[in-house]
């Protein structure tokens, strides 16, 4: 019964994402999409994948994967966010 409730919540969230994309919110649309998707993922992980009942080790595995993904994004972003800010003497100016 709990599973059915989770499934219903997931469908409501799906409707919310799909609906929100028709409301002009600029950059906040993307934010809403990602926030809702993360919430959906959390529901699936906690209930369907039983993460709630798992021990510390399994939770750690899940968290480490996300942290490492964040490292890939974050440290690459040190480059992309400042690429145009100033130029090394040896690199060509655009």
């Amino acid at each position: 019964m709990r599973y059915v409730a989770v499934w219903a919540a997931l469908l409501v969230l799906l409707a919310a994402t799909a609906g929100s994309s028709y409301i002009p919110m600029g950059g906040w649309n993307a934010f809403a999409n990602m926030a809702i998707s993360s919430l959906k993922a959390l529901l699936v992980a906690l209930f369907f994948m039983q993460l709630r009942h798992e021990g510390a080790l399994v939770r750690l595995a899940a968290v480490v994967a996300l942290v490492w993904l964040a490292l890939l994004f974050g440290l690459s972003w040190t480059d992309y966010s400042t690429r145009g800010a100033s130029h090394a003497p040896w690199s060509a100016r655009p």
Partner: peptide
């Protein structure tokens, strides 16, 4: 070891600031 990869890219056209961090 996962935080240092940009040292392979110092002269690649990567941002100078990223270079300093790496």
């Amino acid at each position: 070891g996962f935080l240092v990869w940009g040292h392979h890219m110092f002269v690649s056209g990567q941002s100078l600031y990223a270079g300093m961090v790496f």
